[in-house]
């Protein structure tokens, strides 16, 4: 038993030392990373000497589709592919903490993500801020009963992201990275085929109700902006060949936004022939390629200007 106890204690000590060492190493890499979704984009924005006037936030349908240079004011695309509202709200709390709030936020909303029961797992992409940002720490700890215990390992903050972190770190130190946050999907010859192919799988909404948790995250986002004097304009990118009936949940979402005085530009409902008639502008049913992104960005810039003129 004595031999076993010594073995376990020594192993745990080695594990502790390696874990702390790796945690320290990855922390250092993370802070220096200025590119990619594994914190790089956030770091880049947070270390900009001058905060851009406008910021675009949302998922891949804003990340690959909204070109900041289309707007009249200095704009940064702070979108992250695949991220739901909880991530956007978490990110905003960090921007607030670091005094990096812009004057206006263009928030991309995905109505589907507000209907039915949605996952809160996206907050895991902000694990780096566990213990540093109260809101993010609280949401992370709430993921499961034992979630807090996992953070005993310093390196757990990089769980599932080590390879991306190393790749982005190397990319940052090899290139003099400077960007407006937009990443283009270059048009290719197969775009039309993949878009038509993706039409084979269209699932109707199975749930109608608005997810209260997602709404609360959005509400918290909007309240934080209001508190800091940041104007918010919500928008939704178009989808190729979209003909879904508007669900009860989406109608409620729109009505709540209206009650809060938040402008909402919804391209899902607008007939935009220039986009809907050309499959070559799409990468797939949900994503425009760079050629399509140019059209949507110009359109959004125009509509945002109209909204701002109306509000002022």
């Amino acid at each position: 038993m004595r031999k076993f106890s010594i073995f376990i204690i020594v192993s745990l000590l080695i594990l502790f030392a390696f874990d702390r060492g790796l945690g320290y190493l990855f922390d250092s890499f993370y802070r220096q990373t200025k590119t990619g979704q594994t914190g790089g984009k956030i770091n880049y924005y947070l270390t900009l000497p001058k905060t851009p006037d406008w910021v675009v936030m949302g998922n891949s349908r804003a990340f690959y589709q909204i070109i900041p240079d289309s707007f009249a004011r200095p704009t940064y695309n702070l979108c992250h592919a695949g991220m739901h509202q909880i991530f956007q709200t978490g990110l905003l709390t960090q921007m607030e903490r670091e005094g990096k709030m812009p004057k206006l936020i263009l928030l991309h909303l995905e109505p589907e993500e507000f209907i039915g029961e949605q996952s809160n797992r996206d907050i895991q992409n902000l694990k780096f801020y566990h213990g540093k940002n109260e809101w993010i720490t609280r949401e992370l700890n709430a993921l499961s009963r034992y979630e807090q215990a996992k953070f005993f390992f310093a390196s757990y903050r990089y769980n599932g992201r080590v390879i991306s972190l190393l790749k982005n770190y190397l990319q940052t130190i090899r290139t003099n990275y400077a960007s407006n946050g937009y990443v283009a999907i270059e048009p290719s010859e197969t775009d039309s085929i993949t878009t038509i192919y993706s039409l084979q799988k269209i699932l109707p909404f199975t749930d109608e109700k608005l997810d209260q948790h997602q709404w609360e995250y959005l509400h918290e986002f909007l309240s934080t902006c209001r508190k800091n004097g940041v104007q918010v304009i919500c928008f939704t990118s178009p989808i190729y060949s979209y003909d879904q009936k508007k669900s009860e949940g989406v109608m409620e979402l729109e009505s709540r936004l209206k009650n809060m005085g938040i402008p909402y530009i919804n391209y899902l409902e607008k007939n935009i022939p220039v986009l809907q008639q050309r499959t070559s502008l799409w990468k797939d049913r949900h994503h425009l390629n760079h050629a399509g992104a140019q059209i949507e960005s110009r359109m959004l810039a125009h509509d945002v200007d109209s909204v701002l003129t109306l509000y002022h």
Binding site: V10, S11, I14, F18, L22, Y156, N159, G160
Partner: peptide, 23 residues
């Protein structure tokens, strides 16, 4: 050997912490 066993336990635990799907 004990060294190999300790390396095994520490190494794979770290791999689980860093790469494991926690949920």
């Amino acid at each position: 050997s004990p060294t190999w066993s300790a390396a095994w336990l520490v190494g794979f635990t770290l791999l689980i912490v860093l790469f494991g799907v926690s949920d």
